[in-house]
Amino acid sequence: MRLLRVGVTVAMLAVVWGAELAYACPACASPLEENRQAFVDTTVFLTLVPLAMMGGFVWWLRRQTRQPH
């Protein structure tokens, strides 16, 4: 049952990813694959940096406040 659920999720994600080929956009993306990849990479980078900083700080704070003085 669990396997089925995981399988369905993976299949849905694969469909979403594969939809790229069938995507008809009105103002089509940059012809340079490097440029498109750069946008994806920097998106991931910019999103993860603040979350990592905040997450790290909260984790550190919890460790500090839990330690006995």
Partner: peptide, 19 residues
């Protein structure tokens, strides 16, 4: 932090990102 590219759906961004 994960939603901002929805302003650019017709700006010609990578369809993978649009999804």
């Amino acid at each position: 932090f994960f939603v901002w590219a929805h302003h650019q759906f017709v700006a010609g961004i990578d369809p993978r990102m649009a999804n």
